[in-house]
Amino acid sequence: MRQTLSPSLAEETAATLREELARGRLTPGQRLSEAKLAAELGISRNTLREVFRLLTREGILRHEPNRGVFVATPSMASVLDIFRVRRLIEVPALAQAWHRHEAVDSMRKAVERAESLRDEGDWRAIGSANMEFHTAIVSLSDSPRLSAFFAQIIVELRLAFGLLENPEQLHGPYIQRNRDILSRLQAGDPKGAALMLDDYLEKSERAVMAAFARIS
Rank of each mutant, 00 (worst) to 15 (best):
L164G: 05
Q169F: 12
I175H: 14
G162T: 09
Q169H: 07
I175S: 14
F133A: 03
G162S: 06
A136I: 10
S147H: 08
L140N: 06
I137W: 01
G162V: 10
A125M: 05
Y174A: 07
A148E: 11
A187E: 15
E112Q: 12
N178H: 15
E112V: 00
G188Y: 11
S143H: 12
E165I: 06
A136M: 09
E156S: 14
I154G: 12
R145S: 15
G162Y: 12
E115G: 03
F161M: 14
A193S: 02
V138K: 08
H134C: 02
N178F: 10
F150N: 09
Q169M: 10
D122Q: 06
E165N: 12
N166V: 06
L146T: 00
P144F: 01
E132D: 11
D189M: 05
H134V: 02
P144H: 03
L146F: 08
E120Y: 09
L146C: 01
L182V: 06
D198I: 01
L197H: 03
G162W: 11
R177L: 07
L185S: 02
T135D: 12
M196E: 03
G192N: 07
D180G: 05
S116F: 01
F150Q: 06
L163I: 10
A114K: 00
E156I: 11
L195S: 10
K191H: 06
I175E: 15
G121R: 00
D122N: 10
T135A: 13
A114R: 03
N178G: 15
G127E: 02
A125N: 05
R113K: 14
S116L: 00
T135M: 07
R118D: 12
P167F: 03
E156M: 13
E156R: 10
D189H: 07
S139H: 01
A194K: 04
L182W: 12
E165T: 09
Q186M: 13
G127L: 04
G121H: 03
L117P: 12
L146Y: 04
L195R: 06
L146K: 00
R113G: 08
N166S: 10
D119Q: 15
A129D: 04
R145T: 14
D119N: 09
S128Q: 15
I153N: 13
E156C: 14
R124N: 01
F161T: 10
L195D: 15
R158C: 12
S116N: 00
Q152A: 08
E168Q: 11
T135L: 04
A114D: 02
M196R: 04
L163W: 06
F149E: 12
G172P: 07
S116I: 01
W123P: 04
Q186Y: 05
M131E: 12
L117E: 13
I137T: 07
N130Q: 10
E112S: 03
Q186H: 02
A151N: 14
G192I: 02
G188P: 03
S141Y: 00
A160W: 07
G172W: 01
D180T: 13
P144W: 01
A160I: 02
E165G: 08
E112I: 02
I154D: 11
N130I: 05
N166Y: 10
I154S: 15
I175Q: 15
A125C: 02
L185M: 00
A151E: 08
E115I: 04
I153S: 11
G162A: 11
P144Y: 01
Q186G: 05
L164E: 00
E165Q: 09
D122T: 04
P144V: 01
H134Q: 11
I175K: 11
I154V: 14
E112Y: 01
P167R: 01
I137H: 05
